[in-house]
Amino acid sequence: MGPMTSAADLVRPTRLSPEQWQARRSHHAERIDGLLGDQLVKRAQHGRQSIEEFLLTYYNFRPAQLRRWQPGPGFILDGAEPEEFGPYFVADPHGAVRLDAAGVLERRRDSVEWIYRLLSSTAARAPHFGCFGMHEWAMVYRQAPAEVRHNLLPLRLGAEGTADVVDQLAVRCSHFDAFRFFTPAARPLNLLQPTRETQHEHDQPACLHANMDVYRWAYRLSPLVPSELIADCFELAKEIRTLDMRASPYDLTTIGLSPIQVETAEGRAEYVRFQRDFSERAGLLRNRLVDYCEQALG
């Protein structure tokens, strides 16, 4: 994780010298480069199957945006130019740069309030750890091979074996952006029928996709949150997506991932151990985003 930036920073502005903010900017860019790794090489080798490529494609935030550093609210940057940080940064009469948070809210208040409600309601809900990653299995349930979403990857247990696991374990998916990719045959099997309109009622803090989406809400709140926090969320999303794919029905040995065999009791227990850890870590990040929203909205 990168340096923690608390909501208290929003109350007492901190002045950063050119040396201080430039060091933070350089550290952030190096960190993102490390998280992306040889992403272009992986794209050439594996297409969209690589973890990094999925995150950059599924989430609408480009590598250049992820690398670009901005301090968020609560900082005054000496010796800076507003253009270095984005359209909501302004220079004061003394030539220092700060975020115009009021200007952000003037244009994006509805979005910030929607994200705040979702984050808050998710954090307040009891976690449920019994899904065992069946959402990925439901996306290929009783589907023709040519229609499988990741059709370049073989199914570990074959089509019938995959369907048998879904039938035995049932599907308990609460996240709309996973549910919307279910096959027609799998949709009626789900215990919930989530929609975009009911997302605030269904997202819960043990869900891998809801916790991976903490990254989505972090960058959508930018520049009201610092780039370091967005990087924290991206780093966690990368780990969560790795578990998501390891627990999927696909054979991922060609991209270097060993399976978590959720069709077995041992595999399900391993999945839940990871899921609990991610739930705790995502909860900390979610709470930080809630703090920033509350400070911004007053």
Rank of each mutant, 00 (worst) to 15 (best):
A44N: 14
D92C: 03
I51A: 01
R98S: 15
E84I: 06
R109C: 14
R43D: 11
P71V: 09
F61E: 12
R98I: 03
V104Q: 04
R109P: 06
W69E: 06
A102E: 13
S111D: 14
Y88F: 15
Q70M: 13
S50E: 02
E106A: 15
F85Y: 03
Q49D: 15
Y59M: 04
R67A: 13
R108T: 12
G86F: 04
V90E: 13
P82H: 04
V104I: 08
K42M: 12
P93N: 04
A102L: 06
G79V: 10
K42Y: 05
V41N: 14
A80N: 00
V97E: 00
R48H: 09
P63K: 00
V112N: 01
G86I: 03
S50Q: 06
D100W: 05
P73C: 09
S111G: 09
A80C: 08
G72P: 01
L56W: 02
R43H: 12
A102N: 10
K42D: 09
V41R: 15
Q39D: 03
N60V: 14
G86E: 07
G74P: 03
D92Q: 05
P82F: 09
F54E: 04
G79H: 10
V41C: 05
L55N: 01
V97H: 01
Y59Q: 05
P71H: 03
L66D: 00
I76S: 14
V104A: 06
L99I: 04
R43M: 12
R98L: 10
Q49E: 10
A101H: 09
R108N: 14
E83N: 09
A80K: 00
I51T: 15
R62E: 15
Q70A: 15
P93H: 11
Q65K: 13
L66E: 11
